[in-house]
Structures are given as structure tokens and as C-alpha cells.
């Protein structure tokens, strides 16, 4: 009788699953092949033909490997991404916006600091709150099994979202303004980008990151290959 475990192991050598999970899949498929083979022998099929017929159930082992990987990991990756990044990230962002709006309604105005002919806005009470919110995002991400990188990404999510918005807003503005007949002064755009970048992105980002780092000291997972799983797992079929 052929060694079905060995046959399957050879054919599914590139299956990118956890070792335990991979071994389970191999054992299960080997058991299935073995039963198919035995059923054929009972029908008086010659041994060699039974082996071939059992193996013929799979015409493309690479394709099977890919489909098993997709079936086992696709949902898992999506759920992981949701719980470790999107939920803590959006929660941090939502709370930071609510807190900022509340402060404005309570009459806490931004402090304006002049620097090289530019006015930079600082919401000091808001900035003070951000390490706590960053810590919250990182904590929720860590609790959901997020790696150090993912937890830090979740903690600075509001600053990243704002950066992306700014980066998109300026090129769009530079396209729209000439269309509606206004001259674009690149110096003004650059100054605005710098001013808003410092006040709304750089300092809040640092404040959030401080909170995220603080949580990592106490609850963080060690930096490992899991840090890159969100982006890379789907490519290892």
C-alpha cells in the first residue's frame, strides 16, 4: 500500500498554513485517498490502477493547494483585519473627532502660534487627550491579537486618515482651481500644507503614537512575521 501521507505531503509542500493546520489538512486528504483506494480494491480493481484512480481525483495539486489556502485563510484574514485594525482605528478616530468637537463647543479655542509667517493651530486639551485615545486603539488591537505594527497603526489611524485626506485634497484643489479660472499660488499651497500638516497631522500623530507605544510596553505582542500577515498572506498560495 502506498504511503498516502508522504504522497500528499510531497504534493502539498507549498501549502502556506500554520504547521498544525497544514498537518491536519495533509492527514485528512491522505485518509480520504486511502479510503478511496481501499474501496477500489474491494471492487477488485488491481492495486496499481486503484492507486492511479485515487490520485486522479486531483488533476492539479497546485490549484488544490491554492483553493485550500483561500478557503482556510480568506475569511480569517478579513476578520483579523477588521478586529485588529479597522475597528480600533475607526474607534480612535471617532472618539478623537467627538472630543475635538466637544472642546470647540465648550469654548476651548485653538491656540495660534506664529512660525515663519504662518499660523499653526494647536488644540492643547485635544492634543493632551490623544495619547489616551492612541493607547485605547492599540489596546483594542492588541487584545484582538494584533501584532505590534498593527496595534501602532491602529493607534495613529486618525492622523493617517487625515494625512490621506490632505494629500488627496491638495492635488484635487490644484486641478479644480485653474478650471474655475483661479490662479493657484504654489507658495500658499505649500505653506498651508506645512501649517496644517504640523497642527493637524504631525503633532496629533506623535501624541497618538506615544499612547500606542505606552500600551505596547505592557500588552504588546513581540514583533514577528505576524506583523506582515495582513498584507502578505494572500500571496503565499
Amino acid at each position: 500500500m502506498p504511503d498516502w501521507q508522504k504522497l500528499v505531503r510531497e504534493r502539498l509542500s507549498g501549502l502556506a498554513l500554520d504547521p498544525r493546520e497544514k498537518e491536519e489538512v495533509r492527514a485528512e486528504l491522505a485518509a480520504h485517498l486511502e479510503e478511496s483506494y481501499e474501496a477500489l480494491l474491494k471492487e477488485n480493481v488491481p492495486e496499481q490502477a486503484a492507486v492511479c484512480a485515487a490520485l486522479f481525483q486531483v488533476t492539479d495539486w497546485r490549484d488544490l493547494q491554492r483553493r485550500i489556502f483561500d478557503a482556510k485563510k480568506k475569511g480569517h484574514i478579513m476578520t483579523k483585519r477588521l478586529h485588529q485594525l479597522w475597528i480600533p482605528g475607526f474607534l480612535t478616530m471617532g472618539l478623537s473627532i467627538v472630543f475635538l468637537v466637544t472642546l470647540q463647543k465648550l469654548g476651548f479655542n485653538a491656540r495660534i502660534v506664529s512660525w515663519r509667517d504662518s499660523d499653526i493651530f494647536f488644540y492643547a486639551p485635544w492634543l493632551v487627550s490623544l495619547p489616551f485615545l492612541g493607547a485605547l486603539g492599540a489596546y483594542i488591537s492588541s487584545r484582538a491579537g494584533g501584532s505590534r505594527g498593527t496595534a501602532l497603526l491602529a493607534s495613529i489611524f486618525p492622523a493617517l486618515a487625515l494625512t490621506l485626506t490632505f494629500l488627496l485634497m491638495f492635488p484635487i484643489d490644484m486641478i479644480i482651481e485653474p478650471i474655475i479660472g483661479r490662479q493657484v499660488d504654489f507658495k500658499i499651497v505649500a505653506a498651508a500644507l506645512l501649517k496644517d500638516g504640523i497642527g493637524w497631522m504631525l503633532f496629533p500623530g506623535v501624541a497618538l503614537l506615544v499612547g500606542g507605544f505606552f500600551v505596547q510596553l505592557f500588552f504588546g505582542h513581540p514583533l514577528s512575521s505576524r506583523d506582515t500577515t495582513i498584507g502578505s498572506e494572500t500571496t503565499h498560495a
Binding site: E24, H32, S36, Q57, V58, L64, I68, A71, K72, G75
Partner: peptide, 23 residues
Amino acid sequence: FTLAALYPMLYRMEQQRWIRGTW
């Protein structure tokens, strides 16, 4: 169902929590 058709489907259904596999 051949082996190639069956197991990816079983694993997908397991991920969707419609079925549960135990040794």
C-alpha cells in the same frame, strides 16, 4: 465529489461556521 472539489468547500463552509470538523 472528488477530493479536489470536496475539501476546499468543506473548509470554506467551516470558516463560515456552517459546519464544524473535529478529529
